[in-house]
Design a protein around this nucleic acid. Sequence first.
DNA 1: TGACAAATAGAACGACCGTACTATTCTGGT
DNA 2: ACCAGAATAGTACGGTCGTTCTATTTGTCA
Lengths: 200, 200
Amino acid sequence: MSKGDQTRQAILARAFELATINGISGLSIGRLAEETGLSKSGLFAHFGSKEALEVAVVEEASRQFVQDVMVPALRHPRGEPRLRALFDNWIRWGQRPGGCFFVGASTELDERPGPPRDALVRAIKDWVDELAKAVRIAVSERHFRSDVNPEQVAFEIYGMMLGMHTFHRFLREPTTLDRAKQAFERLLAASRAATPRSRS
Amino acid sequence: MSKGDQTRQAILARAFELATINGISGLSIGRLAEETGLSKSGLFAHFGSKEALEVAVVEEASRQFVQDVMVPALRHPRGEPRLRALFDNWIRWGQRPGGCFFVGASTELDERPGPPRDALVRAIKDWVDELAKAVRIAVSERHFRSDVNPEQVAFEIYGMMLGMHTFHRFLREPTTLDRAKQAFERLLAASRAATPRSRS
DNA sequence: TGACAAATAGAACGACCGTACTATTCTGGT
DNA sequence: ACCAGAATAGTACGGTCGTTCTATTTGTCA
């Protein structure tokens, strides 16, 4: 890894932290430069434009998300256990300072077309697809009923996560974690295969 | 209504629209001034500071929300019908250009303490309480089971709305409305009093 | 080790920001 | 119709923004 790449990576790590807290447009090159001990122009040269920096930050966030949330879940058994692991890991991800990068960024960019938005859409779609895939596996493993719609369940889980974010980080409701877990359990229970005694 | 109040109201109406699209910190006094045909300083004099303008915008948003979403729901019968009306009205509210003001603003202000955040917290808490109240009424009207937790249901509905916002406005998923409605129906079904044939 | 390229710094730019101060125009009550 | 006070405009200031251009330092490889 060349010196330049090293610096670039250090910049992105800090940029991701700052963007999680202040939002992606709350990132300023001057501020980021002094945070990383570089000159404004020295930092700027690594990206060439603010927009390219934003794209790089989104990609860095995605990289970390895959690493912290998705990959560890693969160690859990296919089906419901893995889905639970994804949920738990996501909750932990949302506990970092500033909350979940993607929650803030998606509302920030939703009316601002361009490469940063496109990169973010791709990342979030991947995540939703991953959730749906985990549900689909739970169906094929017969943890969930066969009439469960994976995309629908993924949609509802995503909503729960967003709700948790608002209630916890914005409203500061102390009951939030319990509420989210309860909602998740209710959804799982509704999706679960009927207990043996009914029918066959 | 004095001339000053009239102008102030016109400013706030436009400011609310712009803030819904560009976010509350995307609002700039210069831009807002030219949008309303006032001079920068003339507009500024109405509020005294950017922060006071932001508070006023949040209050304007709350005012419109009460008027467009809450009040019309009161015309519907107490209980489940009214809860449905609240849900439907909220969906319509979220269809305006820029989506739901509160969704964007709450992620924008969640790490920025101060009067604007306080005003927004108040508004959103009121809305969540209103949802919970509607659920509570549905319980007392025996539309919902007596062990239904109104705050929990309000939490889950709020999450659905947030999910709908992300899937519709950000991901631009055409299936979103159906998904949200289905999630809502599933929640209602789970909350509904058991059908007559069971037990009694 | 020397040379060439990569990495970083420095200074300056035009634009826009929120805010202050002063001047002008308008409005409403008598 | 006048006049006090409200409403609005004009101008300027210091600050930060992203970006450009030109130097200078640093790393890398023959």
